[in-house]
Every structure is written in C-alpha cells, then in structure tokens.
Amino acid sequence: MDNMDAKQSALAIVAGLKKAGIDFVATLPDEKMLEVIRTVEKDSGLRHIPLCREEEGVGICAGAYLAGRKTALILQNAGFLNSCNAVTTTSLQFQIPTLLLIYFAGDIGDRGFTTLGAVTEPVLQALGIRSYVLRKTEEIDEILVGAQILAEDSKRPVAVLLTKSLLGVK
C-alpha cells in the first residue's frame, strides 16, 4: 500500500502524539494503521515497542509510565478487547494513564467488522474509559493533546478511536 493520503495522515498523527508529549509507543499492527506504525518506527523521538499481543503492551506501558515515560498504545479494537483484563487490573486499578489509539474497525461505512464496531464504545464506556472519535485531520492535535492531558489528570487510560477517513485509507 502506497497511499499519499495515508502517509500525510500518519505524519500528522505522529506529530500530534509528540505535541501531546508522548515518547514511548507500543503497537500491534492493523492494515489500516500501517503508515502510522511505520512513521512511529522511523521517528527517532519515539521509543517503539512492537508487540505480539495487546495485553502485554498494557503492562509494558505501565512499567514505562512508572519510570517517567509518556506512553501510547496503538492497536485495533479487536486488540483492545483482548487487553480488557490488563486495562482493568493494571491501568485502572493502579491508576496508570495510557493513551489508547484504537483503529475503529466496524465503524460507519466499514465492512466485515460490524460486531466489533458495535461493542467498542459500550465496552469503553463500561470500563469508565473516556473516548473520542477522531475523523478529521484538522482535529488531530486538539484531540491527541487534549486526550493526553485528560489521561494524566485523571490517571486513567483515554481512548481515541481512529477512523478510515482520518487515516486516509479505503
């Protein structure tokens, strides 16, 4: 996939993360976030930890936070569901802020992941994790910077759901 829109969006998202102060990012790929993850990997100002399963990323980000890093976890909503116990018994129980950048599979206009799309926001809500849907590139900085302030202030994870339109992918 070589998509200029996707590259531009990825650059803007990673720039937004850095404006938010993020310096440590754990990721598990989704095809839709390929460019975002490539951009994270290339950025010398971000420590990138590629994961094998999402819940270990919750632990890695928690450890890095305790030592003073500002952390984000980039994953798909299926992966977020995988990590719910870790989010509950580590992030929420120990009050650890972690920015969750979640690709919103099954969002309006998407095919194949309707069940996943339907449960994503209710699960976040049930966990008491505030979430914001990010659809437009012009809102990237405001939402990422704001979400990180909220995460640090509330000492909880905050979720930003990234849509296809934002990511510039089909």
Binding site: V58, I60, G63
Partner: peptide, 21 residues
C-alpha cells in the same frame, strides 16, 4: 519493590521499566 495484580503481566511491567531505565 512493586507487586503486580494482573496474572501474567509481571514480566511485561518489568520489561517496561527496563526499557525506560
């Protein structure tokens, strides 16, 4: 010393500390 809660995550939390320090 830190005691973890989530079964399994002790190695991942320790790794996060080790990466950061």
């Amino acid at each position: 010393n830190l005691k973890t809660r989530t079964l399994g995550l002790v190695s991942s939390i320790a790794a996060g500390l080790a990466f950061a320090l």
